[in-house]
Structure formats: structure tokens, C-alpha cells
Design a protein around this nucleic acid. Structure first.
Lengths: 201, 201
DNA sequence: ATCATAAGCCAACACGCGTTGGCCAACAAG
DNA sequence: CTTGTTGGCCAACGCGTGTTGGCTTATGAT
């Protein structure tokens, strides 16, 4: 009676459902559409068409459009891969951070989606705040001189990183698009480095 | 016969119309709505309501929604006020530029509107490219060492300035909002200065 | 083999949108 | 005063949207 919804023992903790493939297809399509067109123009009908199913399935699995976006925009900035910063590479924190963000941005369209949607959608903007606060914040606090300054320094670094993402991946300013990843890092790393570690004023 | 549409002599070149006040009210309301909500969520009906007239008037005067946005998002970055840069204050170009942009952004909601809309709307994104290219470009070319590098350097400066505008005026990251204008200038000026004048790599 | 359940589709709803054309009143020129 | 022109409103159209409920089919446990 208690395990009615779990047809078989499940080591991972979540019961696998027969519809998991469909759910994933919906999420993939949603991420792509949200990233490419923003919240309003990414219609549930179009997402369903991309996923090869009926629009009503989207509602069944994610409740409503807001719920779909919430599910599709879950993000992990993957700073765990970066524990190198703490261990003593503080002098290269800027370069490591910029490089990491560029990688993440080019691999994961969720970041573009969140940026595109966050500009118009209050909930997405708050989500973005949380992500940067909770994931970038601690990392900055560990690197910067006075932990009390961490939020401000993180915001400054975020402003440069988001600004480049905006110019390069969203607005597609030709010069920003044409720069190689290495060039972008060479230019932005000192900026971010200074925001993180330079003494105030 | 030739002057049928000009009821009286007009020194300024454009005939004043009885509807000019309404046209202006529409544009004001449009700017505010586009800046606050982006393209799709700023409805013509709401704009008309704000302006105190009927939605059909908007169509009469601006053709369609696209035309309205085009008219409402005309922008002059006002770099003319800044000829100080050329005259020899090149060492402070970064500070002057950042300060000028912050002022413009806080006075003119069109900039926020263009940023919010440009993220989702192709035409607005192109418009933004043109504005930065044609208005910021020449100014950068006059300050930077090799004019051939101007576009890239302008894009870098734009990435930082737009990034801060994004964090401060659109996404409203608390630390970015709480910083005083003076603090923002103190942090960003050296960055922009370097983007404009530092030797490459 | 049975049968509850899950997966899926279809058709439709109500709503808000951009947009249109016709009608009325205020104005200005003769 | 008359008459053409402009400014303005009203009512409606067609459309695409998010969303709903019911129906059919496949599935897998019993």
C-alpha cells in the first residue's frame, strides 16, 4: 500500500516512471525555446510540438507554464569543479572564474534562458539573484580580503560576467561574438580579479 | 495647393498638429511600459489607458506596435556633452564615460526599455548594436591607441557598462542597487579605462 | 486473463491580444 | 453659416494563447 507508486526497488531514491523520457523531452524543448525566445514568445504549443507530444501533457506534468519554466531553469553553476581556487590559486581566481563561466554558458543553454527570461520575468530575476548569491557568494567570500565585502564584490564580478554574456550570447554584438574565448579571458580576468581581491577605494 | 497640410508658416520645419499633445502622451506611456515590462507584456491597450485615449489612436499615429516601439525608443546617447574627453582628459575617459552612462540611465527610461526589449526582440537588439556602434564607436576610436581596435574595445566597455545597468536597473541585484553612484564609478572606471587604452595582450 | 492505472490525444473553452472600419464631435477655412 | 478636415471613441473581428476535461489506448501487476 505504501509503495503503490514505486513499481520496483529504486536505489537512486526517486521512482522511475514510464513517462520519464517524455518529461525529459519536454524539458529539453522548453530549455531551448526559453533560451531562444524568452518567456512570452516560447509557447507551450511550440514546446510540445518540439517534444513530439500534445500540449496537454505539459500541463499534466508541470502544472502550468510557470511550473515548466521553474523546472526547466534549475541550475548548478558547478563551482565544485573549481576547488582549485581555494587551494592557493587565488591570484588566478579571476581567470578561472571567467573561463569557467564561458564554458558553462556555451554548454548549458539554461543560463541563456535564465538571462533572457529574467529580464522580463520577476520570478526568474529573483531566481537569478539567489543562484548568484548562494553559489557565487561563498566562493567570493573565500577569496576576498574581508568577507563582509563579499556581496558587493560578487555583484561587481557578476556585472562584468553577465555583461559579457549579454553582449556575446544574447545581443550578439559582432565584436563580442568574434573574440576568441582566450581573448575574452585575457581581457576580463584582470577586471574580475580586481573586483574580487583589490583593496577598497 | 502645395501647402495644404501646413496651416501656418512654420519656422521649425515640421508642421505642428493639434494632436501633438496626444502623440507625446502616447510616447511617454509607451516608454514607461516598455521599460517596465518589455515588448510582449507592454500591451497597446495598457499604453493607451495610461495616455488616456483609445487604443485605436495608437494605431492611427504609429501604424502598429512595432512602429510605436521604434518611435518610442529613439535615443541620443548625448556624447556631445562630453567633448571634454578629446581635449586631453584621456586619462579620465573611463570615469567620464561611466559617470555619463549612469546619469543617462537614471534620467532616460528609454535605455532601460531598449535593454529589456532588446533581449527578446531582434529589431531592438539590432537597434542597440547600431546605437553603440555609431555613437560610442567614434568616441572610442578617438581615445584608443589603434583605431582598428576601436570596435573590440568599444564592445568590451559596453559589456561592462551594460552589465552594470543589467544588475542595477533591470535585475536589481541588491548589492548593485545599494552602491552609490560614486562607488560604482570608482569600481568601473579603471575597468573601462583599461578596455579603452591599455595595450593589447 | 483481468483490470486498475498511467500515457497520450482531441476538442474545446475563455481570455486578451493587435488591429480595423465606421461613426460622431470639435475645429478651422471659405 | 457652411463645409471639409482632423481628433477621438466604440464595437467588433480574427487569432493565438494557456488551460481543462474527457476519451482511448498501452502497460504491467495480479
Amino acid at each position: 500500500m505504501s509503495e503503490k507508486l514505486a513499481p520496483q526497488a529504486d536505489p537512486s531514491g526517486t521512482a522511475p516512471r514510464r513517462s520519464d523520457a517524455t518529461r525529459a523531452a519536454i524539458l529539453d524543448a522548453a530549455r531551448e525555446r526559453f533560451a531562444a525566445e524568452g518567456y512570452e514568445r516560447a509557447t507551450i504549443r511550440a514546446i510540445a510540438r518540439d517534444a513530439g507530444i500534445d500540449p496537454s501533457m505539459v500541463m499534466r506534468y508541470y502544472g502550468n507554464k510557470e511550473g515548466l519554466f521553474a523546472a526547466a531553469s534549475e541550475i548548478d553553476l558547478r563551482f565544485d569543479d573549481l576547488d582549485g581556487i581555494r587551494v592557493g590559486a587565488d591570484r588566478h581566481a579571476g581567470a578561472v572564474l571567467v573561463s569557467h563561466f564561458l564554458d558553462r554558458w556555451e554548454q548549458d543553454e539554461v543560463l541563456t534562458a535564465l538571462l533572457r527570461v529574467g529580464v522580463t520575468n520577476e520570478a526568474a530575476a529573483r531566481r537569478m539573484q539567489e543562484i548568484f548569491k548562494e553559489q557565487l557568494g561563498p566562493l567570493v567570500a573565500a577569496v576576498c580580503p574581508d568577507p563582509a565585502e563579499a556581496p558587493r564584490r560578487a555583484a561587481l564580478a557578476a556585472s562584468q560576467i553577465l555583461g559579457m554574456a549579454l553582449a556575446r550570447y544574447v545581443l550578439r554584438f559582432p565584436p563580442a561574438v568574434e573574440m576568441s574565448q582566450r581573448e575574452v579571458i585575457a581581457w576580463l580576468a584582470p577586471t574580475v580579479q580586481r573586483y574580487l581581491t583589490a583593496p577598497e577605494a
